[in-house]
Design a protein around this nucleic acid. Structure first.
Lengths: 261, 261
DNA sequence: AGAATAGTGTCTGTTAGACATTATAGA
DNA sequence: TCTATAATGTCTAACAGACACTATTCT
């Protein structure tokens, strides 16, 4: 363990107490994809909470929380979700670190942005439990659209959302619904709507998606019901990846956090 | 500014002092690409420093440093490079946050990994100034090869290097030498060697690279000299990107930091 | 029957990869 | 001349996108 220390900490005369600590926080972008609208389009959304304290009450922000002594960031993010929006059983992923020293007038703080993709019904349930203090906002290219009220997110929170969107885009570029926005079973149309909501114009055509994703799926034997038109075959995810992997090898996604703004 | 706070910090009765601060550090992976070896291959390398203090002297680690009060992470990384390896004028990029609470037996610390790509001559100069306490190690797939001595890097430092490699791979997948490992002028062969060092088998063939990168380059009129075979045309980067951008739109790289290990 | 959606088959343009050919240097 | 490397041109297989056509449901 001790060999994991930064090199400087081992110089002669070094004292950890010479460096005051920073108050650490986490902010969590809970991302989901809504149901199709009247034109059959789905939209990427994020869960917001309303500030209820003495400071700027009524402001909508993504859930956040300070990190307790010796707490891990991922645990802090999980507890944050449990306490603020009643969501459990998720796995937050680190994004960028917000380190502007003047973020908090009361002291020196940093915050680590996180992202958590959840199925729509989970987000809906969270909002339903406390509709006055929780809401879903549509996330579009570099902007957020609140349901009714105007509002713009704090700049640093918008930055976290930008990274959250990029995270989802990299994950949804070449695999069918890896984060399970749809449930266990789904049709190819639903799959296309979800991927189109995340990737927009950058995604394949329906034809290309079918060709590329079908090897990852298996037929459940069921067919969709209740809608106009020919019923669609219902698929589920295959247990293991197909042996016929895509010809072109995937470039690993960047690990960078900070992008120039 | 104050609206950038995490939501929890604004609850009634909240006191920032209830949350003790964490000692913040930065670790910086200085990455470079070496000169071609006897088989014409170049290799990705990273700059290491030798611990000189009382603790584990002789251990090789990537440069690191604690963050001073209200200091920005990027500034801490820059100062770290200046003081430890004499490198200035660079722009460190954030990677992942190491938050294991037992990393430092003396107290609660976290460290933010950074990456800095530098031309080979810069790394060579840094080593040359202090050859006993600085060295270059070859970075291969998920492992590090030290020049002479054995050594394996501390686990958390290896993690930073993994992210640094992924960062470079995403950057070098579709643009010619964006971080300037080669100098201002270079031949297509040199360009291929650098990209192959970073991307390995995942990179294009020489033919495909030529077709895709040529629109980004312009002929200097010069030709290479001194080697066997037909002299190569010397290119430089074009001022602006070509109007004929690649047909297939690039999926933005992931913003995630933490990957499961 | 008509509209709407799902699924299949075919064609075309683009591109990566392979390879042959030519060009030009040093040994 | 021989060898090594650079540069160009051509061919092929793979694939994305487009579209025609069939299938199946609801109204």
């Amino acid at each position: 363990m001790s060999q994991d220390l930064p090199e400087s900490s081992r110089e002669p005369g070094f004292d950890l107490e010479d460096f005051p600590g920073v108050h650490m926080a986490v902010d969590v972008a809970v991302m989901t994809v809504g149901e199709p609208n009247e034109w059959g389009e789905r939209q990427l959304m994020t869960l917001l909470v309303k500030r209820t304290g003495e400071f700027e009450p009524g402001t909508w922000v993504i859930p956040g929380r300070f990190v307790r002594y010796r707490e891990r960031l991922k645990d802090a993010a999980k507890i944050c979700l449990k306490e603020k929006v009643g969501i459990t059983g998720v796995n937050p992923r680190q994004l960028n670190v917000l380190d502007e020293p003047d973020r908090d007038p009361r002291g020196w703080t940093m915050s680590v942005g996180h992202v958590v993709p959840v199925p729509f019904y989970v987000a809906l349930k969270a909002v339903g439990e406390s509709p006055m203090t929780r809401d879903l906002a549509v996330v579009t290219e570099k902007r957020i659209e609140f349901r009714s009220e105007q509002q713009t997110l704090p700049r640093s929170q918008q930055k976290i959302l930008d990274y959250a969107v990029n995270y989802l885009r990299s994950r949804y570029a070449s695999r069918p619904d890896p984060k399970g926005f749809l449930g266990e079973k789904f049709t190819l149309s639903e799959l296309y709507e979800v991927h189109a909501a995340i990737l927009g114009q950058k995604f394949w055509s329906r034809d290309a998606m079918r060709r590329n994703f079908l090897p990852f799926l298996e037929d459940t034997g069921e067919i969709s019901k209740g809608s106009v038109g020919k019923p669609a075959v219902v698929y589920r995810h295959r247990e293991r990846d197909p042996l016929t992997t895509p010809r072109r090898v995937q470039i690993p996604s960047s690990s960078q956090i900070a992008t120039e703004y």
